[in-house]
Amino acid sequence: MFAYIIRRVLQMIPTIFGVMLLLFILFNWVGGDPSYILAGKSMNATTLANIRAQLGLDKSQFAQFLIFVKQVATLNFGISWSNQQPVSSILAARVGPSVTLTGFIMLVSTVLSISMASLVAYVRGSLTDRMVTLICTTAMSVSALVYIIAGQFWLAHKLGWFPVLGWGDSFAKNLVTYLPLPVLLGVIVSLAPDLRFYRSCFVEEMNHDYVRTARAKGLSEPKIMLKHVMRNALIPVVTSIMMSLPYLLVGALLLETFFAIPGMGREVIMAVDKSDFPVIKAITIYIAILTMIFNLLADIVYKLIDPRVQLK
């Protein structure tokens, strides 16, 4: 196991390097000269030259790349171009709200969708099953945007059951006041696709031979479902949950934007809007590294719950 972890960590290095290369090409080559953006109103030759020197744009591409590498290694991305704050401190403040929001959505949605999926899989082929699938498909055809816009309009603005937007200082206040509506909408959006996916995991398992053996042993259908099938289906389900954890941090982009929740997702959108390259680069690198770590964790968890897996 230990050798496996070391091997995986070593494999991460070329990947991180690749991400850096990608971002560098994007933002330093394709993105063009940002000095005009930063100069703003005071656009004259001296200011531009100063900015370029500050950002190291007067050096060769290779030297600039090394600067970038150093930034990644020290996790210090300099100053945000839009509000002159250190990027690291901005991001540190944004992590909390994102994790809280998506954490709750994920928790509620997973519990609901797994329980519903197992019920639906149990009666697969029946009218209920087909109706539920149809409803899910139709529900998924409506853009998340529409749910959020409509939800915010009706439930908050018109009916006044929730605040239209905002975020509080304390966890408790958020939990009671500001989280409910975004979490509700987030769950609604993710319930349908999750339900379909988990249902297919369960149905796939139910077609295996060991289910026939369990029946031949005289076990009742609910017992077979809950004990034999569920335990096997848990493997793809848990793996899928672990793989989607990195998305926790980019957060529910749209929800954060609409509800003015100061999370990473909203930060990214604002940064793209303002062409704030350091922030975009920083967030992307952080997320990339975390994704790799989570993938490794997912594989380890997979090994723990599936006795057949041999990690080499």
Binding site: T213, A216, G218
Partner: peptide
């Protein structure tokens, strides 16, 4: 009825299959 049938299965009449690898539950 299903209840009586389940008593017979495994208890009075038992069955073994061709492919033991897939007929056994891999996680138990």
């Amino acid at each position: 009825d299903p209840h009586a049938l389940r008593k017979v299965r495994g208890g009075n009449i038992a069955m073994i299959f061709q492919e033991p690898m897939t007929s056994l539950n891999p996680v138990f």
